[in-house]
Amino acid sequence: MKTTCSLMAILAGTTFMATGALAQELNALVWCDHTDDALIKPFEEKFGVTVNLKEYEGTGAALSLIEQSQPGDWDVLVIDGIDVPRAVSAGILAPLPTESLPYDTLFPELVMAENHVIDGQTYAISEKFGYNTISFNSSAVAADALADMTALWGAAPGSLAVYDYYLPVMGLVAMGLGLNTADLGMDDLPAIEAALMKLKDNASSVGEVVASQTAIATGEVDILVGGGEWVTAGLVSEIPELDWIIPDQGAVRWSQSIGVFADSSQPDLAVEFVKHVLSPEGQAALATSSCYWAMPANAAAGDVMTAEQKRALRWDDQAAYLAKAQLYPAPDADLDAAMQDVWTRFLAR
């Protein structure tokens, strides 16, 4: 009897501790650049909570994870800026309290009301952005040779790698063909596919983030199509010859957004996390993440970033770059499926 009572006491204690611990946790579905202690620890210490991070790559993977989860499992979502309307229509995101977010210091192009504001409610805010463009090894290729993107169609065999993400690369190729990413339609796909196949014929590899970085960092290739500061900025101190360029035709601008789950069990804490990530300190840590570097959406981060960090991200050139850049293509379901079919043929070639 005594043993039973002791066991029950231990079980009760364990349950209490577990419940207590659960109440102290925030669960975020994020990209790999959110996992550094420099970003997460200050929030955990300030609020006395544990932030559980689940990394994913690609909105499709996130939607699969969310579909398989129970309501309340997740509190914060980091998502591709162009996919915010998709997440809102699926009922995933909750409106944000805009008054407590730093819109006054956000780069104006990153407000992106057309993506973040639906029926008058703001569901997400930009946190980081950059460009899918051309990274290159300046000791092997001159920047001038890449100023015209169409030069890539005839690059030396084996000299380039392609980043394995269909939306930015197809958008970039479309810009090379003189098309606007916002206006892409089914009729444009044959020309884009033909140009892609020319790229593939000269490509040594088609890889995801790590494989792309490895390919150009190890000298396996001299050019990375779809690369940008997110590939080179973090490596430039070790490999100064790594560089990137926005061709005359422009580049595709990517941006990631952050929002709070509609069924979060602790929405106030989740909003605090969003505010932390958007703070100048949070933005500086996010911009220089060990996974990849890129520009912070909040220009106030410039006050806490070092001159060297800003130089690597080309802080002072952003106005010109933003003017030349176009957003990712935002296809409807049918066009998206057709684009993915093209990309599958590209991979299979």
């Binding site: 909105t59 993977a61 490509a203 040594s204 590899s205 088609v206 494989a211 993915q340 991979l347």
Partner: peptide
């Protein structure tokens, strides 16, 4: 393979991670 020789398991992963 460097994304140059698409195999069936890679196609399965494409369906899950890209297309859901």
């Amino acid at each position: 393979g460097g994304g140059n020789d698409l195999a069936l398991p890679q196609l399965v992963m494409l369906q899950i991670s890209r297309r859901a």
